[in-house]
């Protein structure tokens, strides 16, 4: 029971966070002026200082917050600010002129929105990948074994709505596997699908490996080969208008380093295959 209450609270917290997403752009704007001063300091060979503003996909929240803390620990004069939101929202904010140093997208389509606008300082590189996984309640009460179980009308199944990225990926894998999926609900985002598994209200849901990892106490993950048909590649780049380019590069370097890659792997991401 108490676990469920905590779950309800965490749902509320997630909502509060999404509601706050819009304000970060304003924070970023106010930090831009202070960052401008710092880039002058760092170019003269001093340690990284000022503010670093990173726009990153919401799925990177935990890993990047952790990496940001590490960077701040290494450079006491540096303040790392994040704007976590859906990649499409971030891309829109950037093309509308939001000042940022780094952009990390959850898919290449939204990175293209930014590069098409010529906002990148260097070509984006893929730094990690995320694949779909089947999430089932602890103990797998319905004995789900693979993607084919999603065609079973007797099971209660959740997928993401086709309008959101995880739903589009789900459609791709179903199509590739030739499976006529029989979901009972098309959830508005991947966390909502995961919540239904955590509550034990669905027998299985199609979510990302990182979501299974984040909820590893409550759910079990089942990998399936068809997931390779819809791999989400995460590109990152520094931005042309970066108020703090040296810190931006330092952050991208940290993400690409063994330390950064390990943190990503611990969160359920995997190293890029290409």
């Amino acid at each position: 029971m108490s676990r469920r209450v905590r779950l309800a609270l965490s749902v509320a917290a997630v909502l509060a966070l999404t509601a706050c997403g819009g304000t970060s752009a304003g924070d970023a704007a106010s930090s831009a002026s202070s960052a401008a001063a710092s880039s002058a300091a760092s170019s003269s060979g001093e340690d990284l200082t000022g503010t670093l503003t990173v726009f990153a996909a919401a799925s990177l929240t935990d890993v990047f917050t952790d990496l940001g803390d590490r960077l701040e620990a290494d450079h006491p004069g540096l303040d790392v600010q994040f704007n976590f939101a859906g990649s499409s929202q971030l891309a829109t904010q950037l093309t509308q002129g939001a000042p940022a140093d780094v952009f990390a997208s959850a898919n290449e389509a939204q990175m293209e929105v930014v590069t098409d606008a010529g906002l990148q300082a260097a070509d984006p590189t893929v730094f990690t990948e995320n694949v779909l996984e089947i999430a089932v309640p602890k103990g797998n009460p319905a004995h789900v074994t693979g993607l084919a179980d999603f065609a079973d009308p007797d099971l209660t199944l959740a997928v993401c709505a086709p309008d959101v990225p995880c739903g589009a990926a789900a459609q791709e894998v179903f199509q590739a596997a030739g499976i006529d999926a029989q979901p009972d609900t098309q959830e508005e985002d991947v966390k909502a699908a995961l919540t239904k598994v955590q509550l034990g209200e669905v027998d299985a849901a199609l979510v990302y490996a990182t979501d299974v990892q984040a909820a590893s106490g409550d759910v079990e993950g089942i990998e399936f080969p068809e997931a390779e048909q819809a791999v989400n590649q995460y590109p990152i780049c520094t931005l042309e208008a970066a108020p703090n380019p040296d810190a931006a590069q330092a952050f991208v370097d940290l993400v690409d380093s063994d330390e950064g890659q390990q943190a990503l792997e611990d969160a359920g991401f995997r190293a890029p295959t290409s």
Partner: peptide
């Protein structure tokens, strides 16, 4: 959308359709 989920024809009411279309 939390309790009934979202499925066209069964549980997808207008506000749910609006929200998803917005994505």
């Amino acid at each position: 959308i939390t309790f009934a989920g979202n499925f066209p024809g069964t549980t997808q009411t207008m506000p749910l359709a609006v929200y998803l279309a917005l994505q």
